[in-house]
Design a protein around this nucleic acid. Sequence first.
DNA 1: GGAAGGACCTGGAGGC
DNA 2: TGCCTCCAGGTCCTTC
Length: 289
Amino acid sequence: MPELPEVEVVRRGLARWASGRTVASVEVLHPRAVRRHLPGAADFAARIAGSTLDEPRRRGKYLWLPFGDAAVLAHLGMSGQLLVGEADAPPQRHLRVRLAFADDGLDLRFVDQRTFGHLMVCPLVPDPRGGEGGVPDVIAHIAADPFEPVFDDEAFFKALKRKQTGVKRALLDQSLISGVGNIYADEALWRAGLHGERPTARLTGAQSALLLRSVREVMDEALRAGGTSFDSLYVNVNGESGYFERSLNAYGRRDEPCARCGTAILREVFMNRSSYSCPRCQPRPRLVR
DNA sequence: GGAAGGACCTGGAGGC
DNA sequence: TGCCTCCAGGTCCTTC
C-alpha cells in the first residue's frame, strides 16, 4: 500500500521522467479517478493539456506536479500507480488516466485497481506550515510529514497531549503527522514498544521522541529498499516492486515469533482494519479509573 | 468540537 | 467450475 516511502519513490521517478515535459493530451478513461476534480473530467483534461510540468513535490502521501500557479495533485489510495511507458504500449487492465507528451516520448499512466486513488487539478497556495513553495489548496490542512524540515517535534508532542485518543489513531491522523499509514504505524509502534491503544495524553516526552524516531527510521529503511510491496499493487514508475516487506517485524506477521522476544505476533481488528503487535513488547495499556 | 465508526471500492483468496 | 464471503485500507462523512 502506498505510504510515504512508496510515494517518495514514485516522486523520484516522476522527477526523472515527467518534469520539464509538456503535456500534449489527457485521456480520462474512468470518471472516478478524477471525482474530486469537481468541474469534471473534460475540465481536468483541458486544464493540463499544453502545460509544462515542473519538478514533482510531495507531502505525506500526496504528490503533485506543479505547472504555473496550479498543480496536478495525485493520491494513490490503496492501489494507485503512476507508470511511465511506451506510448503505443497496450492499455493496462485498470488504466484510469493517460497523459501523452508533446515530445512523443514515454507517456504517463494512472492505473488504479481499487479506485481509492484520485487525480485533480488545484491552485497552489502559500504553505501554512511555513515550507518553501506553494501547496495545493485542498491539502493545506494536513500536517507536514516527519521528513520535512518544517515538522515540529515539540508541537507534535503537545498536540498528542491535547488529544483524547490512542497513539495509533493519532499516527494515522494526517492533521497531526502526514504520510503514516497502517503498515508503518504498526512497525513504528513495534520499534517503540508502544501499544496502539495507549492514550496519547499519557505519553511522556521521551516516548513521543522515541515514537517519532521509530517512524523516521522505519520509513527511511523502507525508502532505501524501494518501498513495501505485498503484491503488484505498489510499484515504482517503471513497474518494479520494492522489497521492504521482507524487513517488517510486526505488520502481516500474525502468529510468527517476535524478532525481539519470540512471543507470537498478535493480530487485532482496529478501525475496521488489521493491527499487528507483540503482546509482550507492546503491552496493552491498563485502564485508568 | 472532538472522537469513533462506517461507507466507498475492487479483485484475490478460500470455502463449499 | 461457479458462487459466495471475507479481506485489504486511506479518506471522507455521519453520528454521538
